[in-house]
């Protein structure tokens, strides 16, 4: 199953460490954190779609997808920019004539953005396992709601 960088949005503190880490490793950042008007912050990077829209218009096959794994070969990129039109997330960026996109930091065990995330909000995982942690936390919360409140003056040991 292909792995990708996902975000637990309930944890992102908007510190932008991922941007700096990516910038250091890849010269330019392929992840960007948008802090919304309230406090919510959302890191956006290539979603490594399993049925990607960006591959279809690519004239030279620089972007391709096999078995749900998105591949990119920069030498085949003509810089036509059609993929930037197709990508719904704006994560394929035309820079210096070719496309730059997240390549999950080949050669590193975990992509730099995930390794650096202080809050543990970025996760490098298989898409199927994404809900597990949230479900478990939700279940705990529902279960806790059923507990009788502690009586005044007593502390649960």
């Amino acid at each position: 199953m292909p792995e990708a960088v996902y975000a637990d949005l309930s944890r992102c503190i908007g510190c932008r460490a991922c941007e700096l880490a990516c910038e250091r490793e890849n010269k330019s950042s392929r992840i960007s954190v948008k802090v919304l008007s309230g406090l919510a912050a959302a890191p956006v990077s290539c979603r490594q779609c399993e049925i990607p829209l960006c591959t279809a218009p690519c004239p030279k096959g620089a972007l391709s997808c096999e078995n749900g794994k998105l591949e990119y070969e920069a030498e085949n990129c003509t810089g036509c920019g059609l993929c930037t039109l197709a990508c719904p997330f704006g994560t394929a960026v035309l820079r210096a004539g070719i496309i730059e996109r997240c390549n999950l930091c080949p050669g590193m065990e975990t992509p730099a953005c995930v390794a650096t995330c202080p809050a543990g909000a970025l996760i490098y995982t298989e898409p199927g396992s994404l809900g597990e942690n949230i479900r478990q936390r939700r279940a705990k919360r529902m279960n806790r709601a059923l507990e009788p409140p502690a009586p005044a003056g007593r502390r649960a040991e």
Partner: peptide, 22 residues
């Protein structure tokens, strides 16, 4: 020339904030 993370460190468990990265 760069940074490698240190997941075994007991304080940050490999993570670094933007300042640390820079």
């Amino acid at each position: 020339v760069g940074i490698r993370y240190m997941p075994e460190h007991p304080v940050n468990e490999g993570s670094l904030c933007p300042k640390g990265n820079a």
